[in-house]
Structure formats: structure tokens, C-alpha cells
């Protein structure tokens, strides 16, 4: 498993390096290398996740290393989708290095269960895989919103100041990044909503309570509210452009709080 993940890491590192070089040098050949390496990495990664699941007989989302590997997988998947739909290659220079880092941490982290809950009792439920994976996909979508928003803000600022840096010409247009942010936010919110709902159903089936007031739940609720507002504002068109982009950034900060912050504060949720 470890060697497979090492191969995945190697592929993603190659892909990251080439996507950055392609961004700087504008060479299609480099971009192609990056995409091939990413594709191979993604296939190996998928294999690794499935193998993990089959060998240990439990959904590969319980340990921290598994959570990180899964999150990385979701990020690559979402980058694929954006690449396919919008050809927004510069997203890769944010996504791929992060993915490589996550895989690296996943490899170096020892695989001991975190927290007190027995793995078997958690993953025995059918709702757990659904709950956790939906939320991971939502996080990946919000990461895309975040990056698109950052690209928006960078370019909007340069357009307003009329001073263009070298990267200005290499980023996708304002309209494109805006569309990416809008559709990813909608997808992310949908996933988040269903993810939270399944979590509640699962929780009530375990101990009859929908809500535990644990930090992760509170952050998740705040995140949910923020993205809901973002989408409402966007659809009524009163907030376009910069303000919406700032919300996309802020929302991601909340997502990070949900993901990491809650872990530090402890509580009912014990894993990522």
C-alpha cells in the first residue's frame, strides 16, 4: 500500500512541477506531461483507495492518513472536472502541489486510529461512508471556489490599478473564474447539505440526537450558511465580482476551521 502511495506521490510531484513550468513557460508539451502524470497518478491513487477498502474491509476514511489521501483524491477529481469543462489549467498550480503535500503527509503519518471510537463500530454503519465522502467532495469543491476567487481578486485588482504582472496574462478571464466559482459553490453547497443531512440521520440512529453542539458541527453549520448566502446573493445579482470572490475566500477559511480547527478543539467528531 505504502509503495503504491509512493508511486502516486511521485506521479503527482512530476505533475506539479510540470504544471508550474508550463504556467511559466507557456509550453503545451509541459502541460501535456503534467496531465498525463496526473492521470496516471489518479488511476494509481484510485487503485490504492480501493485496495485499502478491500484489504482492511472498512471504508478508507477512518484514519487521518486515509482522510488526507481521500481528500487529495477528491481534489484531483475536481481539478479534472474543471480542466475538462473550462480548460482552466492554472488551477493546477494551486491544486497539484497541495495534493502532493497531502499525499506526502498521508505517507509519513502512522496509521493509528485517532480518538476513542472503535473503527468497526463507526464504519459498520452504511451512512458513514456516504456522510464522510460527501463532505470531502464538498471540501474539494470549496477549494476550487477558493482558488477561483483568488484568481478573480488578483486580476480584478490589476485591472483596477491598470498594472499587469506577468501572471495576469496567464490566468483565465474574469468571466471564466467567476463561472467556475459559481458552479463549484453550487455543487459544494449541495454536497455539504446532503452530507450534513446524512450525518444527522446517522447520528440520530446511533444515539437519537441530531445535534451535539460540537465545534465541527458548529463550523459546518456556519460554512453552510455562508455558502448559502453566497449563492443567494449571486443569483439575485446584487453581489457579483469582488464581493462574491471575497466570500469565496472567507468560506474556505471556515472550511479549514471545520476540517482542522474542530480537530484541535476536540468534541464528538474525532476524525477529519
Amino acid at each position: 500500500m505504502r509503495s503504491l502511495l509512493l508511486a502516486v506521490l511521485a506521479a503527482y510531484v512530476v505533475s506539479s512541477i510540470h504544471v508550474v513550468l508550463a504556467f511559466l513557460n507557456k509550453r503545451r508539451a509541459l502541460q501535456r506531461v503534467s496531465e498525463w502524470a496526473m492521470g496516471i497518478g489518479f488511476l494509481l491513487h484510485t487503485t490504492a483507495l480501493i485496495a485499502d477498502w478491500v484489504i482492511y474491509g472498512e471504508y478508507p476514511l477512518f484514519y487521518l492518513r486515509e482522510a488526507l489521501a481521500f481528500l487529495a483524491w477528491a481534489l484531483v477529481g475536481s481539478y479534472f472536472l474543471v480542466l475538462y469543462r473550462y480548460q482552466a489549467r492554472p488551477l493546477g498550480i494551486f491544486t497539484l502541489p497541495l495534493v502532493s503535500l497531502l499525499i506526502f503527509i498521508a505517507i509519513t503519518t502512522r496509521s493509528e486510529p485517532i480518538g476513542s471510537v472503535e473503527a468497526s463500530s463507526v464504519s459498520a454503519s452504511r451512512l458513514f461512508p456516504l456522510h464522510a465522502s460527501l463532505l470531502f467532495f464538498a471540501y474539494a469543491a470549496f477549494f476550487v471556489v477558493f482558488v477561483a476567487s483568488v484568481m478573480y481578486l488578483l486580476q480584478e485588482r490589476e485591472l483596477k490599478l491598470k498594472k499587469f504582472s506577468a501572471i495576469f496574462h496567464r490566468l483565465p478571464s474574469l468571466t471564466t473564474v467567476n463561472e467556475i466559482a459559481t458552479s463549484s459553490a453550487a455543487i459544494g453547497l449541495t454536497l455539504l447539505t446532503v452530507g450534513i443531512a446524512t450525518g444527522m440521520v446517522w447520528s440520530s440512529s446511533r444515539d437519537g440526537r441530531l445535534w451535539h453542539n460540537d465545534p465541527k458541527e458548529i463550523f459546518a453549520a456556519l460554512t453552510w450558511l455562508l455558502y448559502l448566502l453566497l449563492i443567494l446573493y449571486r443569483s439575485t445579482a446584487s453581489w457579483r465580482g469582488r464581493r462574491a470572490a471575497w466570500m469565496g475566500v472567507l468560506g474556505f477559511v471556515l472550511v479549514l476551521c471545520t476540517f482542522f480547527g474542530a480537530r484541535l478543539m476536540g468534541g464528538y467528531h474525532v476524525f477529519g
Binding site: 507557456k26 509550453r27 503545451r28 486580476q155 485591472l159 496574462h169 483565465p172 478571464s173 474574469l174 468571466t175
Partner: peptide, 26 residues
Amino acid sequence: RTETGIGSNAVSISYMAVELGKKIFN
């Protein structure tokens, strides 16, 4: 032309409108 940016940034006022327009509207 494809591997460097020597032709990519507008250097005339009349073409600037197209280039910036594309930057904004795609």
C-alpha cells in the same frame, strides 16, 4: 509564437480593447 509570449500582449491602442475585453469577458 506558441512557446513564447512575443505576440501575445497587445502593443497598439486599437488592439488593447480586444485584449482587455477578452480578459474580462473571456
